[in-house]
Amino acid sequence: MFETATQGIITGILMGAIYALIALGLSIVFGIMNVTNFAHGDFVMLSMYLSFAVGSALAWDAVATPLITAPLMFLFGIITYYLLIDRTLRQMYVVQLAVTVGLQILMRSAALIIWQAQPRALQYSFIQGNIQIGDFQILTSRLFSAVVSLIFIAGMAYFMNKTWAGRAMRAASDDLGAASLMGVNYHKTYALTFAIGSSITALAGGLVMSFQQTDPVGGIRFGLLSWAVLALAGLGSLPGLIVAGIIVGVVESLTVSFFDPRSRLLGVYAIFILVLWLRPRGLFGRR
């Protein structure tokens, strides 16, 4: 009992760090641009397929594929922004909703046409295997992914606080009109924000591909998990995002250990609803 719980918590913490990374992409787009990208999970799905394509074509390890997929997803983000998102900003909210949900369906269908329905996976990564600590096992691939995720989130905090582009993004988030009076061109700042959000999914996709397969509808799970993490964390706090990611990861993992693997997201949704009900601005949010 105690062993199972501890093992579940360890696995959950590691997965949670990756969930925090995935949610970071959603969080900056929502927090800075006030755009709710319902296709976010499908950006992760596309990234995983790109990882699969790059990894199998070049015989690369999954965790190395973001070197190529991140620039590709950055470009994909810029194109998506100017082609679709930019045009929805001055429209009614329902337009944005329809466009991102439409994008989700488009991406899913395209993945189905290109890669067919059967799941795809890459050869096992160099970081396969376990680390044994006492009675507990840690999957090396998950540990590696968690560490990379946390380092990246810390790097993002540095970027937001210490660079001109990062400060412009925060200023635009606080007051778009005032930011433009400072010389911020919001189209460019928003395009950069969306592209960064999109390339974060490339990094996350590469990491997840080191221990998991992908299929055309696999994005739903990541999208919903991201919303749960974001609702729990609230906007504006990166440490809050990590804690929320870990809570979601641990709850999911314990549900699998003690309840039923098929209902892995049940506990996560329960918290999601509770938080929205009791504390809509999240545990760490500032608004």
């Binding site: 400060r167 010389g183 504006g236 500032r286």
Partner: peptide, 15 residues
């Protein structure tokens, strides 16, 4: 900008 420091606000003036 409420969620930026006074110094960061001033720096935005030089953007």
């Amino acid at each position: 900008f409420p969620n930026m420091t006074v110094l960061e606000n001033l720096m935005m003036g030089a953007y």
